[in-house]
Computed example of a mutant assay.
Amino acid sequence: MRIHIVCGAGASSTFVALRLRRSAAARGMSAHVTAGSESDLASMLPVIDVLLVGPHLQGMFAQIQQQAAVAGVLASLMPATVFSARDGEEALDLALATASTRS
């Protein structure tokens, strides 16, 4: 699974991506996880399966979700607790739940 985490500037999403990678590895899962800013999103959509969006972009989420859908990418808005978590379990669970909605 190819997961991209997006936030405003890309800094906080980098930490979430690192924790998510560790959690995926601990579960024995193969996951390619990247992080970036909202401004880089268009270049990432063609190469990902799931998009996780930082809660501070909630006001833009409908637009981001629509942009992702056009590219065939499933998107979910992350709760703020993902950024304060010590591990990537919540983010990984959200990515898996998002991926499972594909028909």
Rank of each mutant, 00 (worst) to 15 (best):
M1Q: 13
M1R: 12
M1D: 08
R2Q: 15
I3Q: 06
I5L: 14
V6P: 00
V6N: 04
C7I: 11
C7E: 05
G8D: 10
A9R: 14
A9Q: 11
A9Y: 10
S13E: 07
S13R: 11
T14Q: 13
F15E: 06
F15Y: 14
A17M: 08
R21L: 11
A24S: 03
A26M: 06
R27S: 12
M29L: 15
M29G: 15
A31D: 05
V33E: 07
V33N: 02
T34K: 07
T34N: 05
E38N: 14
E38L: 15
S39I: 13
D40N: 11
D40V: 05
L41K: 02
A42T: 10
S43L: 06
V47F: 13
L52S: 01
V53E: 12
G54I: 04
P55C: 10
L57G: 03
M60E: 13
A62V: 08
Q63C: 11
Q63T: 15
Q67N: 09
Q67P: 05
A68Q: 05
G72R: 02
V73W: 03
L77T: 00
V82C: 11
V82G: 11
F83H: 08
F83V: 10
S84G: 15
A85N: 09
R86G: 15
R86H: 14
G88L: 09
A91Y: 03
A91L: 03
L92D: 10
L92H: 10
L94P: 01
T98R: 07
T98I: 04
R102A: 12
